[in-house]
Design a binder for these strands. Structure first.
Lengths: 246, 246
DNA sequence: CGCCAACTTGATGGCTGTCAAGTCAGGTGG
DNA sequence: CCACCTGACTTGACAGCCATCAAGTTGGCG
């Protein structure tokens, strides 16, 4: 009986998670494809997997075979220095791709960890290349996705290289807000999935500095913070932190 | 007569600059291709252009049509914030590709400026996609190049997020040394093409800090500095600056 | 020869890191 | 159900690294 229900669950989940029925289609890899083309992409995704909070999706050094599309959940990626220092290189949410770093050397160059229970689609890279040789739209969109990642990284470099603590945190909040909005969630109210330390690592700050900046934003009425729950009260106030300096 | 010599120069230069005769073949886009495949890549590169020191190859906001392979010379790319702050996102030398940032939005997201008189090959992107749909090796190598750029950016994020001034500068010098070596130049002696301010912008430091760090390295016998001329005297000493910290 | 950009070096200050103590929330086990 | 424990967070005091401001030097180029 338990075997039976489990198999029912599987097939249900298989139906639900086909790209053609996925509500992330407009954010994810199939963006801009015809129904027929989406079906081709569907074919190449044969594995979907749950990743529990705290589990690694992949580790630096492991061999690269697939990229991953996040169906649900939240991840962080980070790189390590031998001496223990680490740098969070990104936070990824539903509809975003993971693993692009592995293409270059056939091994992953960073670690990916789920920050909440998540679900990902495996996209075997060899097959993705096959199909994108046939479907020009897919090829081009994939190139755009990789390029977008490069542009995003440049933005982080700008943040790390030129901004002060509060500017970094404001940028971070505005970015999260915008990405939640694109997924149909509230732009003004959301739960952080990561700790202060992880935010700090991403922003090149210590967790105490992150905490202090949150407190100051709250004092100034820009946001309200209750642990991981954030409400943005004055979005233009946050934006102003970035504009008129120098 | 001047017209004649000029046309001779042109044809000579055209011969010399075909990918098949280019000594950067093993570093550049044609890496790993058969002679026949290299010929296909040659075909799609119809424009080669000189860029004078100080000239822009492209600017943020301009429409994206080509990526560029550097034949000779040296470039920097940088992004701007409205208030005037800027961040150098990279220094590029012969055999490296420029312009990948433009794919994502069909517009360039950063500026590329020649730091010395340079020469670049135009690779029209639409045609590159065409040919990589036919040549699997080219397709895969291009994906590797984009991925390598992402990995490189993560390294810079690590540097900007976690390292102190001297660690950043040491990392920078070791990286330059390694790239010059790959191009057949001395690992220990080279000329910087960029100013202290540009180095600082790349490393998230002020030019005075860069200058002071150079001076300290010199005092400690790690390098010798004479304006833009650098000689690395103790490479393992430089590497040690990175290792044993915490 | 003189100008100017690039660079070096010194003095000072401020932002953020470090260290420390205490609070809060959630989960576990008795 | 409650007490306890632990990880996450907040807040304060202090210090250090690097930015800032300033003055002077160097080298290349017209």
């Amino acid at each position: 009986m338990s075997r039976f229900t489990s198999s029912v669950d599987m097939s249900l989940s298989a139906i639900k998670t086909a790209c053609s029925n996925c509500n992330l289609r407009e954010l994810c890899l199939p963006f801009g494809l015809s129904d027929q083309e989406v079906a081709r992409v569907d074919e190449l995704i044969n594995v979907r997997k749950r990743v529990k909070r705290g589990e690694n999706l992949y580790r630096a050094g492991s061999t690269f075979e697939s990229i991953y599309a996040i169906r649900t959940g939240f991840f962080k990626t980070y790189v390590l220095l031998e001496d223990g220092r680490d740098q969070v290189t990104g936070f990824q949410m539903a509809g975003e791709l993971l693993g692009l770093d592995g293409i270059s050397t056939e091994r992953h160059s960073c670690n990916a960890v789920a920050l909440e229970d998540s679900e990902v689609c495996f996209i075997p890279f060899v097959r993705l290349e096959e199909v994108s040789r046939e479907i020009q739209t897919l090829q081009h969109h994939f190139h755009k996705v990789m390029s977008r990642e490069i542009v995003r990284d440049h933005g982080v470099m700008l943040l790390l290289g030129t901004m002060r603590a509060e500017e970094r945190l404001a940028t971070f909040l505005l970015n999260l807000s915008q990405r939640f909005t694109a997924r149909g969630f509230s732009p003004a109210e959301f739960n952080l999935r990561m700790t202060r330390e992880e935010i700090g690592s991403y922003l090149g700050l210590k967790l105490e500095t992150v905490s202090r900046s949150f407190s100051r934003f709250q004092e100034e009425g820009l946001i309200s913070v209750q642990q991981k729950h954030i409400r943005i009260l004055n979005i233009s106030g946050l934006k102003n932190l970035l504009d008129h300096r120098k």
